[in-house]
């Protein structure tokens, strides 16, 4: 495939479907903030109850992720950053986009191995994911890795949305690009805060016992 089309596809897949999946993932995680272990379990249950879920996963997550990651790495290593010579924001964002992309690639690879693949291997059930995540993020090193990575991924997506709009000729002039930059920065804050918040909630004690039983006891106790 010619460079023009492969780069366009790379840009498109970053937003549709990967960006949308990221937002969906964010909302699923946030259900842990809103509804505790039960809310999270229900959200996981809902997404896994979608028809043809495996086909949806392969078509809208695995394949786009693989392409975006591999081609993105190729793009990242073609760059010759010159931030010491040109110290303005956009140039910094250019380099950050590539750095966060590489962080995202490693993190997502590891995260998929730890969660989705462990589910496939039968080491954890969908219902047990809340406790599973609790056990991971209560380890300080893993928690820090998660924290850095979700912020990096949030940045990569929102800044990528900005450049997507330039690459597809949606935001053309400097004013349009500045306004879209503010919007994307706002989105970055929202996405990063929501992911980080969920991470902190996963560390909470209510996720320790897998939630349900403990919550039930608590409810009967209060009720």
């Amino acid at each position: 495939m010619k460079g023009f089309y492969s780069r366009k596809l790379h840009s498109l897949l970053g937003i549709i479907p990967l960006g949308f999946f990221l937002l969906e993932h964010m909302i699923t995680n946030f259900s842990a903030v809103e509804g505790g272990p039960e809310g999270f379990r229900d959200a996981v249950k809902w997404i896994n109850s979608l028809p043809l879920v495996l086909a949806l996963e392969i078509l809208f997550i695995w394949l786009p992720l693989l392409y975006h990651g591999v081609y993105g790495t190729y793009i990242a290593f073609q760059a010759k950053p010159n931030n010491n010579r040109f110290k303005h924001e956009r140039n910094l964002r250019y380099t950050l986009q590539r750095v966060t992309g590489i962080i995202a690639l490693f993190f997502i690879g590891w995260h998929v191995w730890e969660t989705r693949i462990q589910v496939s291997l039968g080491n954890v059930t969908h219902e047990g994911l809340g406790k599973w995540m609790h056990d991971i993020v209560t380890q300080p090193v893993y928690f820090i890795i998660y924290l850095i990575s979700v912020i990096a991924v949030s940045y990569h997506f929102t800044n990528g949305l900005w450049s997507f709009m330039v690459s597809w000729g949606i935001t053309v002039g400097p004013r349009a690009q500045r306004v879209s930059s503010y919007i994307c920065m706002g989105l970055f804050v929202i996405v990063a805060v929501m992911f980080t918040w969920s991470l902190f909630v996963f560390r909470g004690v209510e996720f320790e016992a897998g939630g349900t039983a403990m919550l039930q006891t608590l409810k009967t106790f209060i009720g």
Binding site: I75, F86, Y94, S163, V166, S167, W168, V172, Q177
Partner: peptide, 29 residues
């Protein structure tokens, strides 16, 4: 045109003040 990575250094260093990034975005379109 796919080689552009949106660092926008070009428009900031052009000695003639040419709106290069606007041109690139317009050509993207």
């Amino acid at each position: 045109i796919e080689g552009c990575g949106n660092s926008q250094n070009c428009v900031r260093s052009c000695p003639k003040g040419i709106p290069l990034t606007t041109s690139i975005a317009e050509m993207n379109k």
